[in-house]
Amino acid sequence: MNCKQVQELLPLFAGHDLDDRSATRVAAHVQSCALCERSASEYFESRQLLQQFAPPSFSEGVYSGMRQRVLREISEESLAPALPQRIVSLFRPNLSWAVATAVLLAVSGLAFYLIATRENGPQQVSQRSEQPNTSPSPKNLQAATATNSGNGGWVTTIQNNAVPTRGTAQMNRPAQPPRRTNSTGPLVADVAANTPERPSMAGSTALPVNNLTESNVVPATDATGSERTLRVDMQTSDQNIRIIWFTRQPAKQGTPGKSSKHDQEASSRA
């Protein structure tokens, strides 16, 4: 054991905090090394000085005064618990609170599940209607109209930002057929098509409808149920122009081309 190692161990050696083996080795080195022996004696001396760090003898008055203050504070606290302590106690871990919280979470989860399953009805309709034909064709629209009108009144809304229609006769052509599901009420299909072109109301070209969004299928508000109404909303690229087409059909009529009445409404710029 060299001097450096001994110097590291001398503080513990002076306080008898070394194990027997280390203490023996340090003691052997200290006996043979004058420098380390002097250091060891200084440690012993400072440790003896430390023993003088004793408190004065406090009078009984000091102790009794302290006890009285402690007892007074205890009695005051026991008589009137402070408001902050009451508030803090509310947030302490408590089994009853834990149980109540667990029950509340369970009820909330159940309620959320029930609400979510109730709202899944229309979403299921939209998911099913998204299946093969996302890009509509006029033929599909006709078929859809026929299907819908034959089953109790579908109302289809088409929102088109750029409707290059030339006249009103073609406006009943393109639409995506929302498929009938097990839902019994009448539905509204909101079909939006966005094309960058500016609408042109003149001409006789077919109505291109892109990007059908059938997720907006909602039950229609056909109160009587005697007639089926088809409504096609077309939003042109100009936000101020919106084309709404209504088709009222008899109950047993098959195709929208044979509808009894066609209404067109174009709102001009506001």
Binding site: G15, Y43, S46
Partner: peptide
């Protein structure tokens, strides 16, 4: 403890 004893010795 070792550190404290060393510091006290140095101070003394």
């Amino acid at each position: 403890i070792s550190s404290a004893r060393r510091k006290i010795k140095i101070y003394c």
